[in-house]
Amino acid sequence: MTQFLSLLLNGVSLGAIYALIALGFVIIFKASEVVSFTQGSLLLLGAYTIARLSHPLGFWLAALAGIVVTALAALLVERLIINRLRGAPVISLAIVTIGVDIILLTELIRRIGSDILNVPHPWGGRSFRIGDVGISQNRLIAILVAGVLIAIFFAAFKYSSWGVAMRASAEDGETAALMGIRLGRVSALAWVVAGALAAVAALFLVGAPTPGVSPSVYSVSLRAFPAAILGGLDSTGGALVGGLLIGITESLAAGYQDQLLFLGRGFGDVVPYVVMIIVLLVRPSGLFGTKELTRV
């Protein structure tokens, strides 16, 4: 039972981090009709920036700088590329973002080299226990921070002018434009928010129990894609549920892998994709989605 609770708690924390990344993915899709595969490299950029700047600036300033740099990088991708390709087929845009992702990733891997860059989290590698249920402090703080950010995000999405503009443009871009809503600005802002969320996710993904910044952080972040897609590509609520679902199943599958050996070793790594496929087979537009990806 305690093992189960530990795994569950760790799964929730991982899921909360995935949810941050997936939310970015979903709002980019809603605001600019682009299935953006740049989230992984943006996240790694955030992690790299935080690690590199931690030394001169100290952790907090470096974290802030990492978030700003990643948000700006996302903005740059939107302004320089996506915005200029408006009206291009959805599939071409998706492939363009894969291209951008590969370019950025290659450069980051070259810079990181074979090192594992350390991020000096003030909470270090300590863990937190209630009875026998344990979690690293880093992951516990991740749950709290992600929870607060997600709550703020949902409140803003529902009540702020930004949220109304965003939802109106997602539903009918031309009519939103006729109302004086600037579609370009809505799209740019979505990328900025997505970039910032990816950097926050990076901040926690590179802390305990993960050793630090290495290119493998990139592949972990990729699991946010099945999270977003199984939740429903255009559903913010779906991103949250999808993230948690992936985080929890992944954690359980890894924790019980001895019992799951009949499925093969390393099942924990593929479980997000298996869950996604099963969900999509039952509901092609995802749990809460309204648009199918085939609408190209």
Binding site: S161, V164, A165, R167, A168, E171, D172, E174, T175, A176, L178, M179, G180, I181
Partner: peptide, 23 residues
Amino acid sequence: PEGRRIFGRLTVEENLRAGGMGS
């Protein structure tokens, strides 16, 4: 626009808010 094109998933109030977004 032709065909009304109201934002069906937004509330009436939010539709009106969207209408005032230009100022």
